[in-house]
Design a protein around this nucleic acid. Structure first.
Lengths: 335, 335
DNA sequence: CTGTTAGCGCTTTCAG
DNA sequence: CTGAAAGCGCTAACAG
């Protein structure tokens, strides 16, 4: 029929027949080409699939994931690509959802080394970009060097401390709350968490401290309240903690809260650092590892679309504020 | 071929031929049924389309929109439905993107009365649920009664004030910053903003004040810094403002910041209220209108899926903290 | 400029 | 339990 031309190559059809087609369409309630049929025909869906963590719902509570998403959205909006959030719920059907997803490529928010969803993505045969890790054959990786960044921040946070501790993301997918010393980073199945622990350990060792004495607290979620209670437990130890490097600003701010209650002035008696340099970090004078997750999201999208091929390394920096070290005078943040 | 059965009704195929099929698939690099072809055949995509505001990118910067999204995601993850974020970029192609979206139904985040995207959704013939408004024939509406909530909060915020003001979202899609008195709410094309202005006006009138004297400041974005500068301008007026009702907690917190700089103690010389009862509101002792956007997102998704039919009204409440009125003693927030 | 034909990959009858 | 045939709605290529 001429119908197809009417919708696709308006120029190849006379105004007269176009009107006739459009009118007939209106009468019949025809709403234009069916997108599914179109995708089938074209062999492309003009849609990027986004896989967010072990359970979709947590992801939206995580400001870092949302920022990353915003970066993807920016590129998608510009290119007219849809962004399909794949319904991952932590169950056996997750893999099925991945193979059922009508997308041209996948972008994956960091997950465990052995997440079966990763196999499903590989099995789908579609291009994939993963943020943070795990690295996999066939997956492009978008990530900062978490180990190096953790090392740099560890050097700052633990300098002069005698009893350092780390406030970590969960160590495995059971997400059990943990408070223990001498955790072996290599047993951790979340690559980002593992790399950060390794970096902190590098710093501990560079500072001449013993990793086996270092307390690692792991929260079940990225939650301020939980961080507070873990920090309280750290303060109640025989040798109370005097430096805490946290893997997120939210966790670090929980620590700051607990420090106030426990009358442990920061940074005089306690050095604290966070991660991602959020607005809240600036507000609380919190030292933090800065990275541009939005830019990383945008880059992930461009890689997924095949617009970029050389996976440039992503930048990070250490933002030092009043929560680490013992500055002679505290100054208000210039921000 | 038996192939289809292998993937869809494993029980209707002998183990032997199933293995044969699977092996052949592995050799040929066949990754399972093509989702597009499947959707075409089934006539359903098992995907919900989400349309986020005038430009996708802003939406992710808006914590309210993100919370709403989390509610949708919850339902989608549970039902195994995909969630397609439609690439809206504020241009002429937006309508095209809508008709190209391979989804079973749409969920729309509130927009202007005359947003052409709404016509595209109607034209697509698919079910649609809209959050906040505008109401339209054929669209289900999920919203609180913004006018009633604004009235209630206005009564609280403006009580005892002689020079009340409102800090509003943009008044039209030009998003120009505005600071003026006697704004006619009915000229505002954003239904949510309009309803809230109407509610505040109801309160002003109920309190015996004159709407034409009421200063309305409208920010270009939902941004704390911008709110601060507008508040400063309000403090510099001949009759300085002594009560400000803001349409978001972010805006209200900007006001609180400006109040500190301008040495206008809250609530003694200035009454302030916000909207959405965020964590930050509790932290800043800010009175706020509370609504459960996550639940609204979930309900929107259920409506879109046809699981609910009676559009129940959504609840709201007024959370009064130390920023409004002049309580005899300030108490720390129990939260 | 308009109409026909074939086929994208799948699933669902219906026969063997 | 397996195979064949039809058709979901579309568009590219080709004739008229």
């Amino acid at each position: 029929m001429t119908v197809s031309y009417t919708y696709n190559r308006a120029e190849r059809v006379s105004a007269e027949s176009r009107d006739k087609v459009l009118q007939a369409a209106a009468e019949l309630g025809y709403a234009g080409p069916d997108p599914a049929a179109r995708s089938l025909r074209y062999g492309s869906t003009r849609t990027l699939g986004v896989i967010l963590g072990e359970h979709l719902t947590y992801a939206f509570d995580n400001p870092q994931a949302v920022t990353f998403l915003a970066g993807i959205a920016e590129v998608c909006a510009d290119r007219g690509y849809g962004m399909l959030i794949v319904p991952i719920a932590g169950g056996a059907e997750d893999s099925l959802r991945v193979s059922e997803a009508a997308v041209d490529a996948f972008i994956i928010w960091t997950t465990t080394d052995d997440d079966p969803v990763l196999d499903a993505v590989s099995g789908s045969g579609r291009p994939a970009v993963i943020h943070g890790g795990p690295a996999r054959a066939g997956f492009r990786l978008v990530s900062i060097d978490n180990r190096a960044a953790a090392f740099a921040m560890g050097m700052k946070t633990f300098a002069g401390a005698t009893r350092p501790a780390i406030l970590s993301f969960p160590l495995d997918s059971s997400r059990k709350t943990v408070l223990a010393a001498g955790i072996d980073p290599d047993t951790v199945r979340f690559p980002v968490t593992r790399q950060r622990l390794l970096g902190y350990r590098d710093a501990i060792e560079a500072l001449g401290l013993d990793w086996n004495d270092v307390i690692v607290g792991a929260t079940a979620t990225n939650n301020e309240g939980e961080a507070s209670s873990l920090a309280e437990r750290m303060f109640a130890l025989e040798h109370p903690i005097d430096a805490i490097a946290a893997m997120s600003d939210d966790l670090a701010i929980g620590v700051l809260g607990a420090a106030v209650s426990a009358q442990r002035p920061v940074p005089v008696t306690l050095s604290v650092s966070g991660w991602d340099d959020s607005r809240a970090a600036a507000l609380h004078q919190l030292s933090s590892v800065a990275q541009d997750l939005r830019a990383q999201g945008a880059r992930a999208a461009r890689l997924a679309l095949g617009e970029e091929s050389v996976p440039a390394s992503d930048g990070w920096s250490i933002v030092v504020r009043a929560s680490t070290g013992q500055p002679a005078t505290r100054r208000p943040d210039p921000d």
